[in-house]
Nucleic acid binder design. Structure first.
Lengths: 198, 198, 198, 198
DNA sequence: AATGAATGAGTCTTCATTCAT
DNA sequence: GATGAATGAAGACTCATTCAT
């Protein structure tokens, strides 16, 4: 890769970084392309060289964010062998990622949601990817006799939704101070419900 | 109330109904005030006579929807005395409301989320209202010795998030065919987690 | 005149009074008919019963104001017989009227000017009426040999313009504290110019 | 300056020129931004690229016009040394400027006046600048013993008002045919009042 | 006579996108 | 590749006026 291509990639990334900031600050619709260009030290024309449209830029951001999140969670899971431990690792990693990257959380859990029908499919994909990741663990655990037979897919969605809501609360209120501190409670709730461990 | 005022109130409601349709179809930003006026058989000026701005209209919609939802859930809970049964009633009622009023679900769970910072506070209020409703049941159950001591507030948020995600899945994929059919699985998950009843 | 007609006239006058306030506060264009109706304790419909349009209302106001001003000045002039004294009386009276009725000044010297082409004719009429009033005095004075032959019409306009500018300055800056205090200086300027009395 | 910037400046000026025409024809409020854009062979967006708002455009126009007028008058005054001659030069130049640039006169003496409170300050500035210019001459003349002690500031305002009214009359009636022909009469009035030279 | 809900044409302004340089 | 001036469609909102009651 020659120096020109290098620079181009760098600028592309700078635009993505700026876009993340601006989109999460103002919301998709109120975020002006001008503002993103400004924040990325680029001209509007330059931005449009790298991304064909505002929508495409947001989509790219969404893809990048989803991929980062999913990759990290997958890696955390692969470090464990026990199915239940894998589920726990996933939970821990999601909380860590969102906790360390507030903007990532804002982007995926807030801005992308009402941004428009164009992004719904992408978001649904993220949701189902996550649900399936969890469902996979649970299936393994069930197969290993560690858990009773349950609707693992629905459990996956519920799992993901519960975590999201905790993250949303954290975004809005700052509680708990460190998002990862929610881990023990969430783990217990997901494993044993409100009845707690027997 | 004379006939003029009668008509005025009727028209106000017609605008709200139309707004619900248009907002959930197009999203907050892409919904044109013109379209809402058209859909409610009103002139733009007439709409603005009843609501001072697009934002205020959306807010009124949000308030109305939140209130309807919360009122119904509260009523369903009051029909039960047992704390756990009250929680189950809440779950059943939420699923029933969203299941019977798809647009209500779309409005509260999708369109209101990324619509802009102006609405975040309102949404957060709805979330916390729900979480507290559930937390209240759980507190009662704990006090009655029916449940172990847990972080009931966080459980309330998790509960609400889990339900929402199931509703979102239903909105996006149509699974399960009847949203209320998700009740048994969700109930079990919320009560006992993935471990199932002992 | 029966009681109903009486009331009608009263209301009409109330509207005119309110209109004077609102127009001079906000300017012709930014003055909302609603605001005038509100300020006159009337409904919009009621206002439109008395005046066929906003423009007509403003015109009526202009006419009333012009007439009041001109009548008072004419009366003041008629109290004098000496032509020069008549001119002095006119000057004194104009300053007194504007000084005592700030809104009148604002209406005629500011709001009516840029309000639109529709009112230009009316304003021009006021200007020429004034100029002729003065020109009349001057003509008499010239005829009586009290003044040399001059272009009395142009002198009338200049006279009126000079006074207006002093009034405008007073409106904007409050100088002089009492507008009538400008009389001696203005009188001297109009009679002898900057050279002062010989 | 490259060719793009050159064109940009040209367009900006074209917008200002068109704005002068449209504003003086229709009045500030009835002048549509669309009309100005059309008249300047520009798109509305292009206009807004150069001026952030209709108000700012009008203000820019006012500033430009004021500056042109004041500059020319100042230059004309500087060509003379005798204080009285300087005042006469100012008078001549004002009449010449307004006489040659009818739209300039319309803008400053008519449209800007009732256009709204936003512009009042700017206009007041113009008035006081002029008054002070004249007051300066008079002060010099007084200091040189050429004139008796008088209130030179008020004389400045009166001077300016008198001239304005003559210009207004010319705008409305076309009298005198050539505005500059008003010079001798005005000069005499300002110097000696209606009493004429001794 | 009076009310005020309703109308709808008209306004300013924004902003994603394009393209000549 | 980059720039930023220019485009123009679309949008929210205003407000003088009307009219059924």
């Amino acid at each position: 890769m020659n120096i020109t291509q290098e620079r181009s990639k760098l600028r592309r990334q700078r635009v993505l970084d700026a876009a993340l900031k601006v989109f999460t600050q103002a919301g998709y619709n109120d975020a002006a392309v001008d503002a993103i260009a400004l924040a990325s030290n680029t001209s509007k024309g330059g931005l449009y060289f790298h991304f064909p449209s505002k929508q495409a830029l947001f989509l790219a951001l969404l893809d990048e964010a989803s991929e980062v999140l999913l990759r990290n969670v997958r890696e955390a899971m692969e470090a464990e062998t026990d199915p239940v431990a894998r589920g726990e690792a996933a939970l821990r990693e999601v909380l860590r990622q969102f906790g360390n990257h507030r903007l990532l959380a804002r982007l995926l859990l807030v801005e992308a949601v009402g941004a428009g029908p164009e992004f719904r499919e992408r978001l649904q994909l993220l949701h189902s990817s996550f649900a399936e990741l969890i469902a996979g663990c649970l299936d393994d655990a069930v197969a290993a006799g560690m858990l009773p037979e349950i609707d693992t897919v629905m459990a996956g969605y519920a799992w993901y939704g519960a975590v999201n809501q905790i993250v949303l609360r954290w975004l809005a209120t700052g509680i708990p101070g460190r998002l990862e501190d929610a881990y023990p409670v969430l783990r217990s709730l997901l494993l044993f419900g409100v009845s707690g461990p027997r």
